[in-house]
């Protein structure tokens, strides 16, 4: 054992996703070689993030201002909302820069095996937005898993009373991959989703 302080730091870093015991040790030892100011800056950044970043009360995006920069951007198409499972999915769509509508983050997928029911997701908040807004299209972009499909189906049931068009993003082949290596389910979904060329 090196010192109690460093063991504590290693254990703390080890709690992060993707950081195993070895990486945690490497990071902790690396920090010892930094200037005290550099380390303090990093620590301050972490505290800063924690105190300043919140969830947007409308769409559950991460934000420092209320509402978030997507929800308050008047140049975006406010008639369309894309429903996604996790914040990471929102970031992925934003990186493409192609989608110009609004989002709604559910924060999970329905999964009884994990004890997650519809009431654990931000569904009532979505329905509230539909009741009090100008939304005309809901785009379901739930992950292509059994649980994602169940979530999408549950949502489509909830959406029937509303006068909105409900669409689902296409499922199919990843670009740049080899057709011969695709699994049968992906191929059949890609075939089902074919369109005029």
């Amino acid at each position: 054992m090196a010192s109690e302080a460093i063991e504590k730091l290693i254990a703390a870093l080890n709690r992060l996703p993707g950081i195993g015991a070895k990486t945690a040790r490497r990071l902790a030892l690396e920090m010892l070689t930094w200037d005290t100011d550099e380390v303090r800056e990093l620590a301050d950044l972490m505290v800063d993030v924690k105190t300043r970043v919140r969830r947007c009360s409308i769409c559950f995006n991460l934000t420092e201002v209320e509402p978030c920069s997507v929800c308050s951007d008047m140049r975006r198409d406010r008639s369309s909302v894309m429903v996604i499972d996790f914040i990471g999915d929102l970031l992925a769509f934003e990186r493409t820069g192609l989608y110009r509508g609004l989002y709604h983050v559910l924060d999970g997928r329905i999964s009884p095996l994990d004890g997650i029911g519809p009431e654990d997701l931000n569904i009532s908040q979505l329905l509230h937005r539909l009741r009090h807004g100008e939304i005309r299209e809901v785009i379901l972009a739930n992950g292509p898993t059994v649980e994602g499909d169940a979530t999408a189906q549950y949502l489509s049931q909830c959406l029937t009373p509303f006068e909105v068009s409900v669409t689902q993003i296409a499922r199919g082949l990843p670009v740049g991959s080899d057709l011969a290596l695709a699994d049968q389910v992906t191929l059949s979904r890609a075939l089902e989703g074919r369109r005029e060329y």
Binding site: I110, G117, V146, D149, A150, Q153, Y154, Q157
Partner: peptide, 10 residues
């Protein structure tokens, strides 16, 4: 029953 319907569907 709407909670079980998505699973019935699949």
């Amino acid at each position: 029953p709407e909670q079980v319907e998505p699973w019935n569907e699949q």
